[in-house]
Design a protein around this nucleic acid. Structure first.
Lengths: 235, 235
DNA sequence: CGGCAAATTGAGGTGCCTCAAGCTCTGTGG
DNA sequence: CCACAGAGCTTGAGGCACCTCAATTTGCCG
């Protein structure tokens, strides 16, 4: 949370407030739903630890993941306007999540303009990420798409201190990668093998995985401007 | 604009303000760029008439459309946080677009809370649309995707009074449909033929086209909850 | 050690793409 | 009013990327 809020200068009492709110938090197991499609949106969630994802299951039974959430992300700041959730949110790894009631959140936004600004500042970034995701889904091959997603995740992980220069803990199963990239578990497997062959990534199965420097993965087509802009924390 | 702002009750002086700002506007030809990728974001744009789209061209030369904008939409309320545009915006049909300088916009948002609220209220809807778009791209067949997009556009057109109960002016060429749906112009053509065969849509080429009632297109897989919620203007 | 989820691997099919023509409008200038 | 150009739409044939089905292996956990 503090990490994300580097978007804006925070005063000491802003930080104090954040820490206070954040103290009340709950643990979620990997693969546990935080909120389900159809639920009436309740409080605002803030991810403190672990990864989560937004996903939707179609009538056909297939699943599509539309976003990965990392520590510092808050969910549905204002989704309350919609009558009910049009998708679900699920913890990927064991996660710690703070809960803030809607009224409380409103007070915070009113009384702490810095925090409000930071939260609104986070939004266009999420939107840009979604637009990039759409571009990937529409116009990139499966291998490019996979490499691109890894770059995206690497950059984000790094911006909140979860990644070194040349590797980072990658908690995504092939299954969830496939659901995020719009392909089959079978196929993502072959794609990963190919990426490994080309020396772009190095994944170790099962347990948390390692990915090589972005430079290599770039080969597979990450928008460098976008990347640099974000690594230089214009972000 | 007034149309979109049915999200929130507007007082008479809100409306007056909108009309004043809106008076200064400029005409764009079909296919003309409003702002290009790489540009430094300037003023805020508000679409008054006609359709526009956000798109991005990849190194490979293919294009992906990621959003359609309809009258009432404002572009990049706060993209200014990003250093430069990561995509372009282009008029699809001849369009009328108002321009509001960033400082002016800030004043409006500060002084007219109703308007500010309406603008922020519009955002989660756009986000939901993008999420739905991602789901389509990832997990729907080309024919479902096409039908889904048409439903989406129909609902939106209708919500701003641009569509009847059973038809609406559809200004999208097959080319742009293909770019939006992540497929080939050749293939969208065959898909449209198939939709026609199945009685789901009826398109007349070239000039503005007609689409049959959603009920039929639903056959191809539109989320009914989502639909109803929006038709019953929970939207 | 047994049970389960995830990862792998193979074989066969298909949806969508590519390439390549030909067609149909609309607009423009002679 | 006609010819011509250009953009968009159609149609066909062949190929590849990714899917489906199905089985096996691997690693994790109680």
């Amino acid at each position: 949370m503090n990490k994300l809020s580097k978007l804006v200068e925070l005063a000491p009492d802003d930080v104090a407030m954040l820490e206070a709110v954040t103290a009340r938090s709950r643990k979620y197991a990997a693969r546990q739903d935080v909120i389900c499609e159809g639920d009436r949106p309740g409080p605002v969630f803030v991810l403190l630890e672990g990864w989560a994802c937004r996903y939707k299951i179609l009538p056909s039974g297939t699943r599509q993941v539309m976003a990965f959430l990392m520590p510092g992300h808050s969910c549905d700041l204002h989704v309350n306007i919609l009558a009910e959730m049009d998708h679900s949110i699920q913890a990927i790894s064991p996660a710690m999540i703070a809960t803030i009631s809607r009224s409380e959140m409103q007070e915070i936004l009113d009384d702490y303009p810095n925090i409000a600004r930071a939260m609104y500042a986070a939004q266009p970034i999420d939107e840009a990420t979604m637009r990039a995701w759409i571009v990937s889904m529409g116009r990139r091959s499966s291998i490019e798409r996979a490499a691109y997603l890894m770059c995206e995740l690497y950059v984000r992980a790094r911006s909140i201190g979860l990644a070194d220069d040349d590797s980072f803990a990658f908690p995504l199963s092939q299954r969830i990668l496939a659901d995020a990239l719009g392909m089959t578990a079978v196929h993502i497997n072959r794609v990963l093998k190919e990426l490994q062959l080309r020396g772009a990534t190095e994944l170790n199965r099962g347990s948390p995985d390692i990915i090589d420097p972005i430079k290599r993965v770039q080969i597979a087509g990450f928008d460098e401007n976008y990347l640099h802009r974000r690594l230089n924390n214009t972000f």
